[in-house]
Design a protein around this nucleic acid. Structure first.
Length: 851
RNA sequence: GCGAGAGUGGCGGAAUUGGGAGACGCGCUGGACUUAGGAUCCAGUGGGAUCAAUCCCGUGGGGGUUCAAAUCCCCCCUCUCGCACCA
């Protein structure tokens, strides 16, 4: 392909992104500019975007914000001599595609393919420097074959198991949902109601890795907020497990407590309604009441139970437990504020020193016994520290001492031991959907599960016309009887395939590894290749994945680490969360949304242009239903992709949310046009003169400062201030009549990661024959980034009175003399006593005076 | 309720080992060029007083530390995010 710069194109001297952008995108594609192969001579840099779910809506301008940020880093690192791996792919299994397919009467595979094509086309228009040869989709059998392979590894290690569990069943979707996908009794994505149902499910034992997932957060350069969210999610707490015997019975139960030091203050125990031991301890006279309470509680979702925090409900079982410390009888209650899923599903209550227990005791008239002094337990629970009382061998000790003493005592007596508990629960891994990875398990005639041999992978998703759940709530795959009825590979005996599929999180747990070696047909990735490229040096994506995707993939990674399949403990060394781009939406009193072109602002109020009706306006997430979507296609058509990229970076800090305001793009457009005119003077009818001359010192210093600023800012992902620095330079350069090409050459390189098309265009115009993508990043002279003569603010009593010019590095005496000679300053020093002079070299001079 | 973060012109935002508040951009005002301007260029633009030089006030509110506070400390208000009976 013949590449012609604007000069060669004749008289096209105005900045015209429509002409240059597609040209360079074609060039990069045809030349394979961003194709990455391992190169021993360069340091590696792996910069990864959280790959998108290719929805039917296509991209809006919010999506590429993070992609542009990571692309700038990728391009910058290449210019700094790094071998950069920067891939992109599709997290394409999942519910929306299945629903879209059903609505449109198509196969989810076809829908997905079409959506991916649209996404890919949109991303390519933005000029992102991905190595498209590494593109992958989680729905591709060559990919999910290895997702299934990892599942088998988990299964072999005992980390995948089946359990009959109460799950969040969503009737509208015909599937179960993970706890995290349900909030307030509805599916967070669609608002469909969710109910509890007991079902056989595959679970992944993530809890076995709780401690390491917590500890290894220390190794990571991640935002503190994300680490904190993961810590909370894992929810480690230290305490003790204590056995309580039930009076006049051989039944006993255990409780977990973080405050075993308050055992002497135990005046009742509480058991979760679902706890099976309730059945065996309830007395006959209480049975009816207890059973109806349990029936009532089971109707409500866990979330709802938790939401109704007050007043607490519960019933007495009629049974008594024996206090393990003093042998006294304490009543056992059933109450739904105790959760079956945490600890042992039973707890002891010390109302004097726990707020929930206090509220419960007050409500039901249960005694409250103080064991830690220092508070007033009449008014409320005292949770602070203090000397213990009424506690036998703990009397006089504070909480810390009492804790170790009581644990020691319990262990000695065989009634308990210290224990660490986690809030994290095992990962519910099966979904009753069609569009997901089949779980590579068969069931033999005796119902026992058996792994599909590795050699038989992938277990392909069968083609099906009817992909709805069966009438009795069975997964869609159970309709594929030919597929379901198979044989055990080893014995040849009949077997049934597992008909659940994996959740969407599965494919995204390891895609960063497949990118290293995406075409490998004999293994998921080559070990040597993995050692070379891992870990991911920079991972950019939204905060919404703080606890789910990022915890799940860390879990899988650690399992793979234990298997010797990967060489790093953690997958993502540095994480960065880009903010969202939101947009203004307009709604009338009836709730009807209006497009931005249907409204106008009158006297600071928004109204419908047509009817004049007042509208309510809000800053919201972009969505089709809110009529506030802006697509990259329309912005690129109007302004070009360099402009879009710069605008998205310039709106504010990359990590912050921003509001899309199309009118603000004008400033970016002007900047690019000014930059263009540095080279293409309108009045000169062509390229400006090469101008092999030296620029003035002021501009030269500014150039060095700009190189430094842009370099530092990219390293810190402060793209907004980097662009500001470039604007300052271009504004200043514009004031000169002509700028030598060697200066434009430097600025072109600085700008090229942000605006790669115009960068490439200029680079060729300046006479280079290779892509600017690998041009050396400009160096700067530190000595030239500071001025020789600087203005020193002179204050009198802390108030700025004058700025005087002195040589940089001047001593106090010199500056003081100069200041005192200054007419204005001396006016302020007249008739007062100078008490003190503060001089901060090159920064400031302050006279402290008094009358 | 608990935890984390934030609050700066008309607007988006700069400035943090404490040292010239408001960089850069939008918008606005005035001017130049023009048949025209939604193009481009130049000048101005935190508030107040003043013809002006200049002065006073000013980073959510109140107090404090300091020669000096957007920045550090204490109290309060507001907003965003996360968790929400986790024994």
């Amino acid at each position: 392909m013949e590449i012609r710069c604007a000069e060669a194109c004749g008289l096209q001297m105005r900045y015209n992104p429509k002409k240059i952008e597609p040209k360079w995108q074609r060039y990069w594609e045809e030349k394979g500019t961003f194709k990455t192969t391992w190169d021993d001579s360069k340091p590696k840099y792996y910069v990864l975007d959280m790959f998108p779910y290719p929805s039917g809506q296509g991209l809006h301008v919010g999506h590429p914000k993070g992609y542009v940020g990571s692309d700038i880093v990728a391009r910058y690192k290449r210019m700094r001599g790094f071998n950069v791996l920067h891939p992109m792919g599709w997290d394409a299994f999942g519910l929306p595609a299945e629903r879209q397919a059903n609505t449109e009467g198509e196969h989810p595979g076809d829908v997905t393919k079409r959506n991916i094509e649209k996404f890919r086309k949109q991303l390519k228009m933005i000029g992102l420097s991905y190595d498209w040869d590494r593109e992958l989709s989680t729905t591709d059998p060559d990919y999910y074959r290895w997702t299934q392979w990892i599942f088998l590894k988990l299964y072999e290690k005992g980390l995948a198991y089946q359990e009959e569990v109460a799950v969040n069943w969503c009737p509208a979707l015909g599937t179960v949902l993970a706890n995290e996908e349900v909030k307030d009794g509805v599916y967070v994505e669609t608002g469909d109601p969710v109910e509890r149902r007991l079902m056989r499910q595959w679970m992944l034992r993530i809890t076995a890795y709780a401690e390491r997932l917590l500890e290894d957060l220390e190794l990571l350069d991640w935002p503190e907020s994300v680490k904190e969210m993961q810590r909370n999610w894992i929810g480690r707490s230290e305490g003790a497990r204590v056995r309580f015997d039930v009076k006049d019975s051989d039944v006993s139960f255990e409780v977990f407590t973080t405050r075993p030091d308050t055992l002497f203050g135990c005046t009742f125990c509480v058991i979760a309604p679902e706890n099976p031991i309730v059945e065996s301890i309830v007395t006959d006279d209480r049975r009816e009441k207890v059973e109806s309470y349990i029936a009532e509680a089971s109707k409500r979702l866990e979330r709802e139970r938790l939401a109704e925090s007050e007043p607490k409900t519960g019933v007495f079982t009629g049974a008594y437990a024996v206090s393990p410390v003093d042998g006294s009888p304490v009543p056992i209650w059933v109450a739904d504020y105790v959760l079956m899923g945490y600890g042992t599903g039973a707890m002891f209550a010390c109302p004097a020193h726990d707020e929930r227990d206090w509220a419960f005791a007050k409500r039901f008239g249960i005694p409250i016994v103080e064991v830690v002094s220092g508070g007033n337990i009449e008014d409320g629970a005292y949770t602070g520290d203090g000397p213990h009382v009424n506690s036998d061998f703990m009397d006089g000790l504070n909480t810390d001492e009492a804790m170790s003493k009581v644990i020691e005592w319990l262990e000695e007596k065989g009634r308990g031991h210290s224990e660490v508990n986690y809030r994290l629960r095992d990962w519910l891994f099966s979904r009753q959907r069609y569009w997901g990875e089949p779980i590579p398990i068969v069931f033999l005639e005796d119902g026992m599960p058996k792994a599909v041999p590795e050699g038989d992978l992938p277990v392909l998703l069968p083609d099906m016309e009817d992909r709805s759940p069966t009438a009795d709530g069975g997964p869609p795959l159970s309709r594929a009887s030919e597929w379901v009825n198979t044989t055990d590979a080893e014995s040849g005996k009949p077997a049934l395939r597992e008909t659940n599929t994996m959740p969407q999180w599965a494919g995204s747990c390891w895609y960063y590894l497949r990118f290293l070696d995406p075409k490998n047909v004999s293994e998921p990735w080559d070990g040597d290749v993995e050692k070379k490229w891992m870990p991911v040096d920079l991972y950019i994506g939204g905060t919404e994945h703080a606890t789910l995707h990022l915890l799940y993939s860390r879990f899988w990674h650690k399992v793979l680490y234990d298997l010797g399949c990967v060489s790093t403990k953690e997958p993502f060394a540095r994480l960065f969360n880009q903010g969202m781009i939101q947009a203004r939406s307009f709604q009338d009193a009836r709730g009807k949304y209006y497009y931005p072109h249907e409204v106008e602002e009158r006297d600071g109020k928004w109204v419908s242009t047509k009817t004049g009706e007042p509208l309510e306006t809000r800053i919201e997430k972009m969505s089709k239903s809110r009529y506030n979507v802006v697509t990259p296609d329309e912005v690129i058509d109007e302004y070009g992709s360099d402009c879009l990229r710069l605008y998205e970076m310039f709106v504010g800090p990359l990590e912050d949310d921003a509001v899309w305001q199309t009118e603000n793009i004008a400033g970016i457009k002007r900047f690019l046009e000014r930059f263009w005119r540095l080279l293409y003077h309108e009045d000169a009818e062509g390229l400006s003169e090469p101008g092999d001359f030296e620029i003035d010192e002021e501009l030269d210093r500014l150039l060095h400062k700009t190189v430094k600023k842009v370099t530092d800012d990219i390293e810190n992902l402060q793209m907004n201030t980097a662009i500001s620095a470039l604007m300052i330079f271009v504004n200043e350069a514009t004031k000169r009549k002509v700028i030598p090409h060697k200066v434009i050459d430097v600025i072109t390189r600085l700008l090229s990661p942000f605006a790669p098309h115009i960068g490439e265009e200029f680079w060729r115009a300046l006479g280079h024959s290779e892509s600017v993508a690998f041009a050396p990043w400009p160096e700067y002279d530190p000595a030239k980034t500071v001025e020789d003569v600087i203005g020193i603010p002179v204050q009198v009593n802390g108030k700025l009175r004058q700025v005087i010019e002195v040589a940089r590095g001047s001593g106090e005496d010199v500056v003081k003399d100069a200041a005192m000679r200054d007419e204005k300053v001396s006016g302020y020093l007249d008739g007062v006593t100078i008490r003190k002079v503060i001089y901060v070299p090159d920064k400031l001079l302050n006279f402290v005076v008094s009358k």
